[in-house]
Amino acid sequence: MIESVREWVLSVIILVAAAAFFEGFFPPGGMDRYLKYIFALILLSAVLSPVTLLLT
């Protein structure tokens, strides 16, 4: 239980840090919005992963 919570927290932190890091390298223009959106979707799936685990 505690191990899975630790894994969840770690995955969320790594994703947030990665999103923050790569934001600086996104090419300016229309593409950066799509890239941010993709990052947000990945992060959303990571945040909601315990819910899916509980449901299954």
């Binding site: 969320v12 932190i13 947030v16 840090a17 999103a19 923050a20 934001e23 941010k36 947000a40 992060l43």
Partner: peptide, 9 residues
């Protein structure tokens, strides 16, 4: 972790 980026997640 949230404060590192430019937008809030």
């Amino acid at each position: 972790a949230d404060s590192i980026g430019r937008r809030s997640y």
